[in-house]
Amino acid sequence: MIATLEYADILDRSEQLGQMILDSDVMEEYNNSQRALNEDNEAQQLIKAFIDIKGHYEDVQRFGRYHPDYSDIMKKVRSAKREMDMNDKVATFKIAERNLQRVLDEISQYVALSVSEQVKSPIEGAALSDSGCGCGSGGSCGCGT
C-alpha cells in the first residue's frame, strides 16, 4: 500500500514538472518559433529542397566515392543545407530547439543525481548536439549542422 501511494505521489509530481515545462518561457519560445517556421513558405521550400536532395544523397552514400554522382551530390547537399540554415526562421527554430533540449537535459540530470550519483542521465547536448548532423544520416555525411 505504501509503495502504491509513493508511486502515485511520484506520478503527480512528474505531471506537475511536465506542466511547468509546458508553461515555461523556453517552451513558449520553441512553440512560437516552430509555428513561425511552419507558416513561412520560403523556409518550407528550403526544407523540402534539402529533404529531396538528402534522398539522393542516401542513394549515392551506399556506394560512397565510387558512385558517379558522388561529388555533385555532396556539393548539392552542402549547398541546400547551408541555404536552409541561413534562413532566419530555421535558425531561430534551431536555437529555440537547442535551448529547450538544454533545459530538458538539465532537468534529467538533476532528477538522476537526486536519486544517486550512479544513475545515468543525458549529458548536455548529447541528444541534440551543436556539432551533430541534422540530416538524419547519423553524422556520416559531414554536413555539420
Rank of each mutant, 00 (worst) to 15 (best):
L5W: 00
V119R: 05
N38M: 10
G134M: 09
D105N: 13
A8C: 09
L11G: 02
E29G: 03
R98K: 13
A96N: 00
I10L: 15
A43R: 02
M74Y: 12
R102H: 13
D72S: 12
E97I: 10
D72C: 05
V60F: 05
A91Y: 01
M1Y: 11
T92P: 04
S131Y: 06
D130M: 12
E15S: 03
I51C: 05
N38Q: 15
V103Q: 06
G125W: 08
L46F: 02
A126W: 05
N99S: 11
A96H: 07
I53N: 01
G144Q: 13
K75H: 14
I21K: 01
D59A: 09
D130A: 10
E83C: 01
A3R: 02
I123C: 04
K94C: 04
S121K: 03
R62C: 01
I51H: 03
H56G: 00
R82K: 09
F63H: 12
L22G: 05
I95F: 00
N38D: 10
D59F: 02
A8Q: 09
R62E: 08
M84F: 05
E6T: 14
R65G: 13
Q19S: 10
K89E: 10
V77Y: 13
V90F: 12
S71Q: 11
Y70D: 07
L113F: 08
S108R: 08
V119C: 02
G132S: 06
M84R: 02
M86V: 03
